Amino acid sequence: MTTSDEKQDQKQSLWNPKDAVPKHIQELLSKPQSNPSNYNYISAFYQIVFLLKDQKRTGWLDFKVPQPESIADHMYRMSIIAMSLNPNSFETDQPSKSTPPDLTKCCKIALVHDIAEALVGDITPRDANIGKVEKNRRELTTIQYLAEIIKPYNSGFAEEIVDLWLDYENQRNFEARIVKDIDKYELIIQTYEYERKTGKNLYEFIESSLKNIKTQEIKALANQIIEEREEFLKSKTSSNGTN
């Protein structure tokens, strides 16, 4: 006898990234190629990437933050952070290695780590309908599907995007671990900015992010934001007390 949980798992397993592709992009992919460069395919990929600009981050929507950032907004600042880090500041995080981290690789990982969310959406741990295993399955299926779309135009990049995504997903190297920390750090910055803007107390985002940062350099950067936040809250309290 099939249980309700098994039925739900079966229903979820039917999810396919192709079904999440907007109709006009599906039509573009099904068109005969008009030139040998396979521009239709890469154009379809670029249009799928646009969906990241159009989707708001679920956590902020859940907390009713007005005009919240998109998934693309989050990934963009992560990439800027990755580019701007001082590679020599990570010596204490990998004392056995003499070579600094490859920040170009960090930037690339940051740019693709959430790219599957263009079709999967921003699924959070709060989602009661989609568990972690199913979320991972959907994202892996999606990155493989995107690689299939890219391959006719640029097979090298098709392989690279999967490798970079797997680097992050499986934390396969030091650069991926740095980006994982950048992901938490960027969330801390964004939380503080929304607290200033809305007056909401969103500390639970800061608390959960800070405790999961592993590298000393990113933790130090995060602590600077925490200090700035504390000074802001004190000044706000002082200002309210004088009114």
Results as ranks from 00 to 15, higher is better:
136 N>V: 13
89 S>A: 14
69 E>I: 11
189 I>P: 02
208 S>R: 09
67 Q>C: 00
86 N>K: 11
65 V>E: 08
152 P>T: 09
152 P>Y: 11
199 G>V: 00
111 L>K: 10
214 K>C: 13
81 I>S: 05
7 K>C: 13
113 H>D: 09
20 A>S: 03
112 V>T: 11
242 T>C: 01
125 P>H: 02
211 K>I: 15
65 V>P: 03
148 E>K: 13
125 P>A: 06
50 F>E: 15
123 I>L: 03
198 T>E: 08
26 Q>E: 14
213 I>Y: 03
185 Y>W: 15
40 N>T: 10
197 K>L: 12
12 Q>S: 05
238 S>V: 08
151 K>W: 07
50 F>Q: 05
198 T>G: 06
221 L>M: 11
163 D>T: 07
118 A>S: 12
148 E>G: 08
49 V>M: 13
194 Y>D: 12
134 E>S: 04
182 I>E: 05
231 E>K: 06
41 Y>S: 15
213 I>D: 09
216 Q>L: 15
24 H>A: 06
162 V>G: 02
145 Y>H: 07
112 V>P: 11
34 S>L: 12
202 L>R: 01
14 L>H: 09
175 E>R: 10
186 E>T: 10
162 V>K: 10
8 Q>G: 01
46 Y>A: 11
194 Y>S: 08
51 L>Y: 01
242 T>D: 04
47 Q>H: 06
67 Q>T: 02
230 E>T: 00
184 K>R: 14
195 E>W: 01
108 K>Y: 05
5 D>T: 04
36 P>H: 00
152 P>W: 07
240 N>Y: 11
23 K>V: 03
88 N>G: 07
185 Y>V: 13
81 I>R: 14
69 E>Q: 06
220 A>C: 08
235 S>L: 00
175 E>D: 10
16 N>P: 00
164 L>G: 09
194 Y>K: 06
191 T>H: 01
192 Y>P: 00
173 N>V: 09
127 D>V: 14
47 Q>A: 11
100 P>W: 01
149 I>S: 00
97 K>M: 10
176 A>C: 06
211 K>Y: 12
125 P>N: 01
146 L>T: 02
221 L>N: 09
75 M>Q: 08
42 I>P: 05
87 P>G: 03
243 N>I: 01
51 L>A: 00
226 I>E: 12
20 A>L: 10
102 D>Y: 02
90 F>V: 10
243 N>P: 01
83 M>R: 09
58 T>D: 02
88 N>V: 12
204 E>P: 05
139 E>T: 05
26 Q>K: 15
147 A>H: 04
117 E>L: 04
101 P>K: 01
58 T>S: 07
103 L>K: 09
148 E>D: 11
151 K>R: 15
181 D>F: 00
47 Q>E: 15
10 Q>L: 14
151 K>N: 15
23 K>S: 06
63 F>A: 02
172 R>V: 04
146 L>V: 03
6 E>M: 12
156 G>S: 14
161 I>V: 15
